[in-house]
Structures are given as C-alpha cells and as structure tokens.
C-alpha cells in the first residue's frame, strides 16, 4: 500500500489537470491582485481623505472584509452576486471578483501605511515651493511611498496565490480543485495533494526569491 501511495504514475495520466489548474491559479492571483490594487488605491485615498463620509465608508469596508472569513465572502459573491446582475459570467470571473474584493481591503492598508510612512516634512517642502497638494503627492510623496509599498504588495501576491485555493469550494477549476478531482478519480489522497502542495510551494518560493532580488535592487538605489 505504502509503495502505491507514493507511486507518481498518475502524473502522466493527469498532468493536464495540473497544468490547467496552475494556469487558472495564476490567472486568479494575477487578476485578483491587479483589481485588488486598483480597489486598494481608491480605498487608501478615501481613507486618507479629509472628507469624513469617504473615510467612514473605506474604514467600514476594510474592517468588514478583514474581519470576516474569506470563505464566507466567496460564498456570498459566488451564490449571491450572480443573482444581482442581469447577465451571466464564467465562474472564474466570480472567483476573481471575490478574491479582489478581499485583497483590496488588505492592499488599501498596505498603501495607506506606505503613504503615511513618508515624512510629513516632505509634503510641507513641496507645498513651500508652491506645489498644490496633488502635485506634491505625485512628484514627492507617491514615489517615496512606492518603495515602502512594493515589497508588501509582492507579499500580498504570494498570499493571494495561496488563498486562491479556497475558491475550489465553489467549483472553480484551479490547482486545488484539480488535485481534489484526481483524488476522487484515483481513490488516492496523499500523492495527488502532495503534488499540488509542491507546485504551490514552487510558485510562492520563486515569487519570494524574485521579490528579494527586487528589494535588494531598490535598497541599493537608496
């Protein structure tokens, strides 16, 4: 039995399952982080805004999304939202929507913290030479905040790659779902799932190494 559990012969038969699973996992993560960043920028600017109402909306959104389980959010988006829109969209899209809405809340906090970490004197210096607030943000604050933000955004991407596994519960055919399918077909749990784990690890480890290189490059430019 033990020998059979570790037999990787199934890989030949089911390798397309893994390949398409990885493709979908990466698609989910890339789009979720992309839209998450766009949402995060808007939420961060709202949270830093002087208008109380914008601030309150952004804060409420961020707190709620960070304070509820992501699996509940995915169920709400997957089973709730399609009924609210008059057109049909592929499952993948709903997966991306759910992960983006969740990631946006985290990204917002990353961006807000990155902007606030820039010394207040920088904006004052920009204003003192006659720059309007927006110009000061664009040329002085944001470029410096970017250095604080980029490494944390890279980490967020890694987190989303891992968390995307959870959308398998609603039948989106990413890596985890595919591995589970193989488990169902072959009646073997350990090896198919272990292969999935190793693939996830290869993806996240590669990303974190790449991130390390980028970070070193950036601090060298300081």
């Amino acid at each position: 039995m033990g020998g059979k559990q570790l037999d990787l012969g199934f890989l030949i038969k089911y390798k397309m399952f893994y390949i398409s699973g990885v493709q979908n996992t990466l698609l989910l993560a890339i789009f979720a982080v992309f839209f998450g960043v766009m949402l995060g920028v808007v939420l961060a600017l709202m949270k830093l805004s002087k208008k109380k109402i914008l601030k309150a909306i952004a804060t409420a959104y961020i707190e709620f999304l960070r304070g509820t389980p992501v699996i509940v959010q995915i169920y709400i988006v997957y089973y709730g939202l399609p009924k609210a829109v008059p057109f049909e969209l592929p499952d993948m899209v709903w997966g991306i929507v759910a992960l983006s809405l969740n990631s946006g809340a985290y990204v917002a906090e990353i961006i807000r913290a990155g902007i606030q970490a820039v010394d207040k004197g920088q904006m004052e210096a920009a204003r003192s030479i006659g720059m309007p607030h927006g110009m000061g943000m664009r040329y002085i604050v944001i470029p410096q905040a970017f250095k604080n933000i980029l490494p944390a955004l890279g980490n967020e991407f890694i987190v989303v790659v891992k968390e995307s596994a959870i959308v398998s519960v609603v039948g989106i055919t990413e890596l985890m779902y595919r591995a589970d399918t193989i488990r169902g077909i072959t009646y073997r749990a350990f090896a198919p799932l272990m292969v999935a784990a190793v693939i996830y690890f290869i993806i996240t480890y590669t990303l974190s190494r790449l991130l390390g290189i980028v970070e070193r490059r950036m601090s060298a430019g300081d």
Partner: peptide
C-alpha cells in the same frame, strides 16, 4: 496660497530635501 508660496521661500530645521 500656492501663488504666494512661490514668492516665499522656506528653509526647514530638518532640511526636508527630496531623498529620491
């Protein structure tokens, strides 16, 4: 005030040069 600030130079205790 952005108009007048162009005519009023300011030097800060902490310099506040743009590091980038």
């Amino acid at each position: 005030v952005n108009v007048q600030r162009q005519k009023m130079g300011m030097v800060f205790q902490q310099f506040n040069l743009f590091p980038h």
